[in-house]
Amino acid sequence: MALERLFRRRRAQGEARDIPELWTKCPKCDAQIYKKDLETNLYVCPKCSHHLRMPADRRVAMLADAGSFEEITGLKPTDPLGFVDTEPYPKRLERYQREAGRPDAIVGGRCTIGGVPSVLLVMDYAFAGGSMGSVVGEEITRGVEQAAQEGRAVVIVAVSGGARMQEAALSLMQMAKTTLALDRLWARRLPYVSILTDPTTGGVTASFAALADVILAEPGALIGFAGPRVIKQTIRQDLPEGFQRSEFLLKHGMVDQVVDRRQLKGTVAQVLKLLHPSTVNRVG
């Protein structure tokens, strides 16, 4: 039972499928990939370059300079509304916490990126689809405020189905709260880079994720406001090929670059070094 659930979960996350454990199959090209190879290749298929979903901890390791990361997150969610649908919210939270191995859908900390002092915040899809409730909103707000105080850049990796329904209007308010926090950063001329990954939709796209100085997207990521299912139901038409994918957003002017994950750290570091006030411009 537990094993079956584990596999079902992994499949749902697009991380891996099929036994045996040491091998996995690319969901795009069906190539058999040795798992260790996939990990060293940053969860990008070595055959077709399809970007599989990457665990939040691996993202931290990929972006922060080695040994520099010092975690600042760890707030725990509550059940402010006493929300019950097919099961009580606290029950769901327990399960998500067990599955993701963290209290809520975000991990973040102080670090350097390409030597630039930064605050790095990474959302975690393994926890409730990366949904934003009070904890995610508060952690992002605190991280941004702390960066502003300490003169750090901010890098946020977004992955989210949107605002968390079980905290209803309180989740909605996190959109305003996180957006307001960015003002503190702007006031100090500190750079903020947003990285949109598969999927980023709803209230996360429509708040802090869309308001960065530089917005990068991973190839093929689903990015938008409304989810494709909702749009399909509303307009009762099939959606065009590639709709709401990173390349579509680049074409429509919504993101700065679509960047292969294997080049991501380099691009982020380059941007931070060009914009951060610690890098003084030499004249002449």
Partner: peptide, 21 residues
Amino acid sequence: AYPGISAEERGQAWVIAQSIQ
């Protein structure tokens, strides 16, 4: 906000974020 193709093409999420800000 309207969930439609044209709205997404013209950056619905982006303008909502900008309007909040």
